[in-house]
Computed example of a mutant assay.
Amino acid sequence: MSDHEFNFDELVESVREAIDINKGIKKPSRSFKYEEIDVVAIRKATHLSQEKFAALIGVSIKTVQGWEQKVRKPLGPARSLLIMFRNNPSQAMALLHQ
């Protein structure tokens, strides 16, 4: 058996496992839970409009609106940046304006 066949078999098994997890047949081996981020409160603490806040953090206004309407969740670096704003809005703004 070549390395390609072995890797393909692992991939197929992973897909089958994902399907079983999605159907509720099997439990995931691990899961991640993130605390909810109140983007409206964070933005309001900056005293900025959606448009200006979006420009400040480098995302589209549609993205901010999606977060605020809870249609989307901030992930990765955007989530980290929002946590910085939540914890200390004036310092986060100062750092971005340097």
Rank of each mutant, 00 (worst) to 15 (best):
V12H: 08
R30W: 14
L11M: 11
H4F: 09
S2V: 04
L96W: 05
F6E: 12
M84D: 13
F32T: 15
E36M: 08
N7W: 03
Q50Y: 03
V15Q: 07
K52F: 08
Q50T: 13
I37C: 04
F53T: 04
I42R: 02
P89K: 01
D20W: 12
L81W: 07
S31F: 06
M93G: 01
M84Y: 09
A54T: 10
K27D: 11
I19M: 14
N88C: 10
D20T: 02
L56C: 02
S29V: 12
G66Q: 08
G24M: 12
H47T: 13
P74M: 03
A54C: 08
K23V: 01
R43S: 06
I42W: 00
I57L: 03
I25G: 02
M93K: 12
L48R: 02
P77N: 07
K62Y: 09
M1N: 06
D38I: 09
A45F: 04
K26W: 13
V71W: 00
V12G: 02
E5H: 09
I21P: 13
N22S: 14
I42Q: 01
V64Q: 01
K73Q: 13
L82R: 10
S14V: 02
Q65P: 00
E36L: 10
D20A: 11
I57C: 02
G66E: 05
S29K: 15
L82N: 03
A41H: 01
K62D: 06
H97G: 06
P89N: 05
F85R: 01
A54M: 05
E68W: 08
Q69K: 13
T63W: 04
P74H: 06
Q50V: 14
A54P: 00
E68F: 09
D9Y: 08
T46V: 07
K70Y: 12
V40W: 00
M1G: 10
S31G: 10
F32R: 14
K27N: 11
P74R: 03
G24D: 08
L82S: 03
E36A: 10
I21Y: 06
A18S: 15
Q65M: 07
V40K: 12
A18C: 11
G24A: 09
K27W: 05
R30T: 14
K27L: 11
E68K: 04
Q98P: 00
Q91G: 01
D38C: 10
P74L: 03
A41M: 02
K62L: 07
V64F: 03
T46M: 07
P77A: 09
R79A: 09
F53M: 05
K27G: 00
L48Q: 03
N7C: 05
Q50N: 06
D38L: 05
S90M: 09
G58M: 04
A45V: 04
R72T: 13
W67E: 00
I25H: 15
E5P: 00
R30I: 07
R43C: 09
L75Q: 13
A92Q: 03
N87C: 03
R79N: 04
S2F: 01
T46N: 06
K70E: 14
L82P: 00
A92L: 05
R79Y: 09
S29R: 14
S2C: 12
V15C: 09
V12C: 09
R72N: 14
S80E: 15
A55R: 09
G76D: 11
V12F: 03
I61Y: 01
T63D: 03
W67M: 01
A54L: 04
V71P: 00
K23F: 05
D9Q: 13
L75S: 12
R43A: 08
S90L: 09
L95I: 05
I19Y: 12
